[in-house]
Amino acid sequence: MKSIELIVYGAEVLCPSCVNLPSSKETYEWLEAAVSRKFPNQPFTITYVDIYNPPSDDGNKKQFAERVIEEDLFYPVVVIENEIVGEGNPKLKTIYSEMEKFGYHAVEI
């Protein structure tokens, strides 16, 4: 199985439409814990990208961070293999379903 990368694009400041939701960083940490529990011992990476300070050495992440700002996407935006799978308040069920398409097998908790 190929290890996939989940990327959480967000910012320190909450998006205007996401006032009562967790911060992007909190969502990233929550997602990392939830995915690790659901797919134990299965390789994946999860990366947090600050949309206002993206990594300068990764053109794809920098370009997508700019897109989040330009298109006023609700962040955090969760991306798996170049597909947006969650925006604003990402749903675990949708993220799990996308990972299963790549051969991940859920372990019931």
Rank of each mutant, 00 (worst) to 15 (best):
E108R: 14
Q42F: 09
Y48Q: 05
R67M: 09
A34S: 11
L6Q: 01
K38G: 03
T47Y: 04
E32L: 10
R37I: 06
V8H: 01
G88Q: 00
P55G: 03
V35C: 10
V77Y: 02
D57N: 15
E83K: 15
S17W: 12
W30R: 05
V13K: 09
P22R: 00
E29R: 09
K93M: 12
I51T: 00
E87D: 09
D50S: 07
I80F: 04
E29C: 06
E29D: 13
A65V: 01
N53V: 10
N82K: 14
N41S: 12
E100C: 11
Y48V: 04
Y9R: 05
P76V: 00
N20R: 01
S3E: 13
L31M: 13
V49I: 13
S17Y: 11
E12Y: 07
E32K: 15
L21E: 01
L21M: 10
K2A: 13
E71N: 13
N53P: 02
P55H: 07
E87M: 13
E26R: 00
E5M: 09
V77N: 04
E81V: 11
C15F: 03
K2N: 15
P16D: 05
V85F: 08
K93S: 14
P90S: 06
V77G: 03
N89F: 04
T47Q: 12
P76E: 02
S56A: 14
R67F: 08
E29F: 06
T94S: 12
V78Y: 03
M1Y: 10
A33W: 04
Q42D: 10
C18M: 04
E26T: 01
P90H: 05
V107P: 04
E12R: 10
A106E: 15
Q42E: 09
N60L: 12
Y52N: 11
K62T: 07
E98V: 15
E12P: 05
S36F: 08
C18R: 00
A33C: 05
D57K: 10
F39H: 08
E98D: 14
K2D: 12
E32G: 07
W30N: 05
V78M: 04
L31G: 04
E71F: 14
L14I: 00
Y96K: 06
E81W: 08
A11M: 08
E29T: 07
E98M: 15
T27G: 02
Y96W: 08
C15K: 00
E108T: 15
E70R: 14
L73D: 05
R67H: 13
L21P: 02
T94H: 10
S24F: 00
Y96E: 09
I4H: 08
G86A: 11
F39S: 07
V107C: 09
D57W: 11
A65I: 01
L6G: 02
M99T: 07
V79I: 09
A65F: 03
V85L: 06
I84A: 03
D57I: 05
T94E: 10
V68G: 07
V79A: 06
M99I: 05
I51Q: 00
N53K: 13
N20Q: 07
L31T: 02
A11W: 06
